[in-house]
Amino acid sequence: MENCDSLKCFQLELFPRLKILRISKCSNLEFICEHEGPLEDLTSLNSLKIWECPKLVSFPKGGLPASCLTELQLFDCANLKSLPVHMDALLPSLEDLRLFLLPKLEVFPEGGLPSKLKSLYIEDCSKLIAARMQWSLQSLPSLSKFTVGVDENVESFPEEMLLPSTLASLEIWSLKTLKSLNYSGLQHLTSLEQLTITDCPNLQSMPGEDPSTLAFHFYHERPVVETECLQHLCP
């Protein structure tokens, strides 16, 4: 669904067998569902992508009961203040969560993120990044890939015990004020195989030591093939 400017509400409950839903450039979309009561389990839905919907504020009050959803992407929703509630219980199959350009999003839902989450991408979400010590990523036993990017208020990263020891890949990009990598926040990442740092012009110091198996990549600018956000939205 794209460029449906007159659409204010998408009645998700009317499509219980929907497998893939992409909503893009619906400038007046405010709600995903106006249904006040709990939704029936959307067992067929496995991919949900919402792009460039500036008036979207929130998801259904009872959350999204999509037990088979594996992929959720939210891109450029300027007024979105919260993710679906009860994600840990209602989205038990979620493996890939990508959050882009969500300036009003401050915290993850109560209860945290689903335990099967494998990949988490946070870009240009200034309030959420500022509240990173509340992420509780340590509770995610399957998280193996984490990317954080586009912020002008981070001087040191990551804080001690911010990231889980299960990470195999860590990408940091376009943290314009980043001055140092915190060794105490990296030393417990015993599964880390790849660390990529891109476009962090003020980075002055690196950790004192790195695991011998670590593949480290440093770029002054992001490679051309990765400059477009949609490259990440559609890997």
Rank of each mutant, 00 (worst) to 15 (best):
L137R: 02
L230G: 08
L14V: 07
E155V: 05
L203Y: 02
D151F: 02
E226I: 01
E2M: 15
S144D: 09
E71A: 08
H220P: 07
I32W: 05
L170Q: 03
Q134M: 11
K19W: 10
N202V: 13
V154N: 07
E155W: 02
I122R: 01
E36P: 03
N153C: 05
S205V: 07
G149W: 00
S6F: 14
L181M: 08
P65K: 04
E193A: 11
R17D: 15
M161Q: 12
R132Q: 11
S139C: 12
K19H: 12
L91I: 04
H220L: 15
F15Q: 08
S44R: 09
F31E: 11
S6M: 14
P235V: 11
L39N: 01
F108N: 00
K55W: 05
C77Q: 05
L42Q: 07
L186R: 04
I197R: 00
L120F: 11
C234P: 06
P114F: 02
C200A: 07
D151N: 09
G112I: 05
I32P: 04
S115A: 12
L14T: 08
W135V: 04
S139A: 13
P201N: 07
L117C: 00
T198N: 10
P114I: 00
S93P: 02
I23A: 00
Q73N: 10
K118I: 09
L7Q: 01
A215D: 15
I122K: 02
R17W: 14
L120T: 03
E30L: 03
A215H: 13
C4M: 12
E221K: 14
S115Q: 14
S180I: 08
Y219F: 15
L143F: 03
L64F: 00
P103Q: 05
P60F: 04
P211Q: 10
E152W: 08
F15K: 09
E110H: 07
S58H: 06
S191R: 07
L195W: 09
A66R: 00
Q134T: 10
E71Q: 12
L163H: 02
L21M: 03
K118V: 09
T196R: 13
T147Y: 06
L90R: 02
E30T: 04
T177R: 12
L203Q: 01
M161D: 14
L72T: 04
F146A: 00
E152A: 11
